[in-house]
Amino acid sequence: MKQATIIISFLLLSILPVKAQTDNEIIANIEKASKEMTSLQCSFTQKKQVSIIDEVITSSGVLYYLRDTKLCWEYKKPYSYKFIMNGDKVMLKSGNTVNVFDTKSNKMFSQISKLIISGVDGSGISDKTRFDVSFATKGKDVVVTLVPKTKDIKKMFSEVLLHFDVQGYFIKEIEMIEPSGDKTDIILTDRIINKSIDEKVFHIE
């Protein structure tokens, strides 16, 4: 029994540092890729699972991101809707209706913008003040699980999962799980990284 305990202890000791090192490597790789990424443009598909109607609501569009606080999140289907964040300003455009907000005065948009950006540029993984962070590998992906610590985010999401591809350590999927268990899955495709983007894309009317 004593021998078995010793062997198990050695096994655990030999595994733990490797696991810790792997997590550190993952963080370092994602942070390195994040630092090197100055811009991103891609298409996205958003799938919202709704249990009360037992259905998935699908939307799609394009995303433009310029480091650090410029984001254009444009839905093309099922209808046109544009969300532009440029510094502290957020513009929402639906059809001909345009609304401009200050992120400082609109908590929900502020939280959503921060979440999207922390997912897109990977900064969420080192944000220990707002999230408990854990890592796992799933096939060819590294999955980073963010469990919100702050009351405001907790009300919206119980967990946020960021999927990075192991090759480039760039974000490819964001899963947002609500307290009710319903889930929003955003899959990024056709990613173009570090190619210049016209500033007009982020223009706030």
Partner: peptide, 14 residues
């Protein structure tokens, strides 16, 4: 049976 979600997929209510 229904749901209302905002554009980002965040649930408003069921």
């Amino acid at each position: 049976y229904g749901t209302a979600v905002n554009e980002f997929g965040v649930k408003v209510f069921d």
